[in-house]
């Protein structure tokens, strides 16, 4: 047994020619393993990294006929054009508002729901509730938007009737700019709040039950146990998710927003993601649209590293 395992163990010192020999030995020993991951590697190279390299058209006036390399280099012209575009402030505000709705309303609701679920004593009920609240996550945005269209159809949709009565309005909610954000928020909450709890419940499942028992003996009430045991135990998860969320601030997601937008609510519905599509695919401004996308991606990258750094400064566990 030891002979086979010894081969796996690292030699204590590996420098100079020994290192080279080891590398060669590894290459031989692992060659079948490398072959196994080759398809995946090709996938990443072709479908993930090649487009990153292709993004250099953001710095050119890309004309498909001339090809990427044949097109004229223009530096940061497209970035400047985008940042000085009169549409830019509106896009930024629309994007940030939707991000804020997601971060400040939908995300806390997820935590609250997870905590409430965790307090359910009856296991069968807990499982049933979980099963039901996860379902909307598995629906396509086309379905979610179709459902919204039915429920909020002017004069006929049951929820239209309900809200129209509640607010004393007869607006066409599907087209009214004032209703765009509330509807989008409702969809987000409906679709993903339940699903979002899964990761918190996983963290909570890992909490040592003896802590609760000890706290009970100490006379801690339900709320005190939640405050001093439950919440601290999901705090690392919250931090990690916050970092990830922050990196996604400019990515509102295309599908939901695009499907919910129409000619009447464009003023509030246009966000970076849909703008990239309209400019790039519909109007054919390839380079300009790529510059917008690249701008978005780089800001996201900066944000994610920034929050990660901040989290570490405050002694929380980061993601890197």
């Amino acid at each position: 047994m030891t002979t086979a395992l010894a081969a796996d163990r690292e030699p204590p010192l590996a420098r100079g020619p020994g290192r080279l020999r080891r590398l060669r030995r590894d290459a031989v020993r692992y060659r079948w393993l490398f072959l196994l991951m080759l398809p995946g590697l090709v996938y990443f190279a072709l479908f993930r990294f090649w487009p990153m390299y292709g993004a250099r058209i953001a710095f050119k006036n890309y004309i498909p006929f001339l090809g990427i390399d044949g097109s004229e280099w223009v530096g940061f012209a497209h970035f400047q054009a985008f940042l000085s575009n009169p549409d830019f402030p509106r896009l930024l505000v629309n994007t940030l508002v939707i991000a804020a709705l997601s971060l400040l309303i939908a995300f806390p609701l997820t935590i609250v729901l997870a905590l409430l679920l965790n307090e359910l004593r009856l296991q069968i009920l807990k499982r049933t509730v979980q099963t039901l609240v996860y379902i909307p996550h598995f629906l396509s945005w086309t379905v979610v938007v179709s459902i919204t269209a039915l429920l909020f159809a002017i004069d006929t949709g049951p929820l239209w009737t309900f809200f129209a009565g509640l607010f004393g309005t007869d607006a066409n909610m599907l087209a009214d700019p004032d209703w765009f954000r509330p509807l989008v928020l409702m969809q987000m909450v409906w679709k993903d709040t339940g699903w979002g709890t899964i990761i918190f419940l996983a963290a909570l499942a890992g909490v040592d039950q003896e802590q609760y028992e000890a706290a009970i003996i100490d006379g801690a009430g339900r709320w005190q146990r939640v405050r001093h045991i439950t919440i601290p135990s999901i705090l690392p998860t919250i931090t990690v998710l916050l970092i990830l969320h922050t990196g996604q601030i400019l990515n509102t997601g295309f599908e939901q927003i695009y499907l919910m937008s129409n000619s009447l609510n464009r003023t509030v519905a246009d966000v970076f993601d849909t703008y990239v599509y309209f400019a790039g695919i519909e109007q054919g401004a390839y380079s300009y649209s790529t510059a917008v996308g690249l701008f978005k991606a780089i800001v996201g990258l900066v944000l994610i590293f920034g929050t990660n750094w901040l989290a570490k400064r405050f002694n929380q566990q980061g993601i890197f």
């Binding site: 991951m37 590697l41 990443f44 072709l46 479908f47 993930r48 990294f49 090649w50 487009p51 990153m52 390299y53 292709g54 993004a55 058209i57 498909p64 990427i68 990196g247 990239v276 599509y277 790039g280 695919i281 390839y286 649209s289 790529t290 996308g293 690249l294 978005k296 991606a297 996201g300 990258l301 994610i304």
Partner: peptide, 22 residues
């Protein structure tokens, strides 16, 4: 490195048009 390659693509991508061109 192999893990890094994968994780990096989670946070950064070439964008819509380069994918379309590809």
């Amino acid at each position: 490195v192999l893990i890094g390659i994968a994780v990096f693509t989670m946070f950064f991508n070439g964008g819509l048009v380069p994918n379309y061109v590809l």
